[in-house]
Nucleic acid binder design. Structure first.
Lengths: 227, 227
DNA sequence: AGACGTTTGTGAACCCATGCACAAAGTTGA
DNA sequence: TCAACTTTGTGCATGGGTTCACAAACGTCT
């Protein structure tokens, strides 16, 4: 094995965003006993163009065989390595409301490369609860906990007003990867990586397109000026 | 009232994706009693460049005043109109597990332009439950319900294996806007709009960047992430 | 061994999005 | 009224991402 192009070379963000999808589909194919796929087949499954798939994969090295395709197992492993999923990443969730509960018991967490090591909420009513074997603790214990059993990724599932304070606590403890479910823009020092998942944003984007469709179809809305 | 540029003109997807953020921030400013903002100020709040904000807003018309800035109320209203949020969109959620419960009780749903009109799950154990005043019903009743009280947006919160069947049911009933939380690629006829929100994808993207950071810092070749 | 069919990997062209820089348009103050 | 100042709206350049199209590489079959 030579140097690892997946880690050395710069992989475009747009490509990184698609790799999890490729990986998921490859895993499903592997379960179904499929040994080899062409870029055309895999692209069709995922819903992208085959040229894009090939270009994406080319960023992590040359793992295909011309005239044949890609070995499913090998490619899945290489994508896992590129994404850093060969190791388990310890995750902590802050905010154990409905969403926090849902995230903690989400099966996708445990299965692939992630492991919940901490659940935090300051509500005393939750103090003795355990989810998937992990106790819920007050946020004040985060730093202490992190020192003993390091946390790589912090998930914020609190209401928006609390999000910045929680974020500051996470950053203060030394966590530099944050997944934010609260509808708030977080300000963080450089070097800290924040991704936001926002339900209402997605709904609003859908509403926009739905509106466009309904206007395009029945064009008898309020006063539309003639061109 | 003249022609509505927000609806007639083509608004780039990238812009549409940012409009909800602008709207949220404007709403917060309005609550704080702020009457007017410059593109510089608003952009700083949202975390984008002021030039981008101005270009985005220019796609929906000319609602700023040179030398002054934007009237907060007016701009919020215009963005709401562009996104189609002046009307309430009826939403149905399918799959009342942890995530479905979390989504149903999510406050963001009710407040801004969306209204839950249906909750569906085939699990008999949930048959008599009500969340936010809406009863949980079996999926078979969807079409009937939709005929009486139309649904604009369907949210899929089921496990991945059930997602395609649920999607087919939604599309079959005539729903053409779908928000999918299941980790599965849905195949739909053209004209149907699907957006996917995937927790594990987001985690994996974070893991990729975290890995890059840890490799850049301590440059130990094949060593593990942990110090 | 050699010709043929298949599929990858990639150079090049296109397209969209972002950022810069400035003229146009408005306000304020004398 | 007019000059000075502020901020918008936008033409233009720049950069990234997507798609096309094809040569190189591999397996297969005779």
């Amino acid at each position: 094995m030579s140097a690892d192009p997946a880690l050395r070379r710069e992989i475009p963000d747009a490509t990184v965003a698609r790799l999890p999808e490729y990986l998921r589909t490859l895993s499903r194919l592997a379960e179904d006993g499929v040994l080899s796929v062409s870029s055309e087949e895999l692209a069709a499954e995922v819903g992208v163009r085959s040229a894009q798939l090939r270009k994406d994969l080319s960023h992590l090295g040359s793992y295909g065989v011309r005239g044949v395709g890609y070995d499913v197992e090998t490619l899945a492993l290489e994508i896992s390595r590129a994404l850093g999923l060969t190791e388990d990443w310890p995750v902590a969730i802050v905010g154990m409301g409905n969403l926090g509960h849902a995230l903690a018991s989400y099966s996708g967490f445990v299965t692939k490369g992630f492991r919940i090591v901490g659940l935090y909420d300051d509500d005393p009513a939750l103090a003795d609860e355990k989810i998937v074997g992990v106790a819920i603790r007050p946020l004040a214990e985060l730093t202490e906990h992190h020192a003993v059993d390091p946390i790589a990724i912090g998930v914020i599932a609190t209401p928006a007003p609390a999000a910045q304070a929680v974020c500051d606590a996470l950053v203060g403890a030394g966590i530099s990867s944050i997944l934010n479910f609260a509808p708030a823009v977080l300000s963080v020092p450089s070097g800290v990586d924040v991704r936001r998942v926002d339900l209402s944003t997605e709904l609003q984007i859908l509403a926009f397109h739905a509106q466009r469709k309904s206007l395009a179809a029945g064009d008898l809305r309020s006063a539309v000026a003639a061109p």
